[in-house]
């Protein structure tokens, strides 16, 4: 007897749950040859708002966890990704039209990238902060602290490696993130959200939306409760300019878009982008 096909509903990932879009809309996702792959949820501005609320709620707890604990949790994500390697490879292959071997290579690179960033969680303070020399009976420390809620537009070209390279550096330091997946290639991001939900990442730390950049990004850019904006996936220069202007209203940190080779060594630049440095004076003795 023929088995009835079990089709998957691709949904958003907000606050640790998988809601459909509040608007009830969806859009067709096709592979590089234009063949239908799936219907993905088409996020509205209210989904973006809900995601920001979830991210804000989760932020103090995530930033308050010890750096060691955050590193462990993020490493756990890589472990679960490894277990889903085949699924990721298929997603990436269909989304980007790669050969099997190259798709697997991209997935391996993404998992390795995640592990690499996870390892940085308890080393950032040593490298990016420090003890400053002063001429007086004081200690003077500079301590990196997370910026808060980061809204990121994931790269449009690299659906998994690019996504991981934007997401991991934002959350490793204690930020929480609202991420808008690549518009035409959202399926690897949705699979990643399933990984995040089943590893130990607290709900709301990462929120993944699928939908139109031109529709959702302006609401994230102008949102007064978002602290930083990563424009990695905004290819349209006019929209990019508009988003930068909207982001200036509450002085968000904005990381501008630009061509990036996602397979290259990323360095700490993206981590540093979403950190605030707190410098404190502390008297010696007394």
């Amino acid at each position: 007897m023929a088995r009835i096909e079990v089709r998957k509903t691709y949904k958003l990932y907000v606050g640790g749950a998988f809601p459909r879009s509040e608007s009830g809309r969806s859009y067709e996702v096709a592979d590089t040859k234009g063949r239908f792959l799936a219907n993905a949820a088409l996020a509205s501005r209210k989904d973006a708002r809900d995601a920001v609320v979830a991210a804000r709620k989760a932020q103090p707890g995530w930033a308050g966890a010890t750096a060691y604990n955050r590193g462990q949790v993020l490493y756990r994500v890589a472990e679960v990704m490894e277990g889903r390697r085949a699924q990721f490879a298929e997603d990436v292959q269909r989304a980007e039209g790669l050969t099997t071997r190259r798709a697997e290579g991209a997935v391996d690179a993404a998992i390795d990238r995640w592990v690499w960033y996870a390892g940085w969680s308890d080393k950032l303070a040593q490298v990016l902060g420090g003890t400053n020399p002063v001429a007086g009976p004081y200690f003077n420390f500079s301590i990196p602290e997370p910026t808060g809620v980061v809204a990121a537009i994931a790269p449009q070209d690299s659906s998994l490696l690019g996504l991981v390279s934007v997401l991991a550096p934002a959350v490793v330091s204690g930020n929480t993130c609202v991420l808008l997946a690549a518009e035409e290639r959202p399926l690897p991001a949705i699979t990643l959200s399933e990984v995040l939900a089943t590893s130990d990442v607290p709900g709301g730390v990462v929120n993944i939306l699928t939908g139109r950049v031109a529709e959702v990004a302006p609401w994230l850019a102008s949102h007064m409760d978002v602290n930083a904006l990563d424009l990695a996936g905004v290819d349209d220069t006019a929209l990019r300019r508009e988003l930068e202007i909207a982001a200036a209203d509450n002085v968000k940190r904005v990381r501008r878009a630009g061509h990036v080779d996602w397979s290259a060594d990323p360095g700490l630049e993206r981590v540093r982008c979403f950190l605030e440095t707190k410098t404190v004076w502390h008297p010696i003795g007394v």
């Binding site: 920001v52 804000r56 609401w219 102008s222 949102h223 007064m224 409760d225």
Partner: peptide, 9 residues
């Protein structure tokens, strides 16, 4: 204002 506000305000 036409934009979402937040608890900072």
């Amino acid at each position: 204002t036409g934009r979402y506000s937040g608890p900072d305000y």
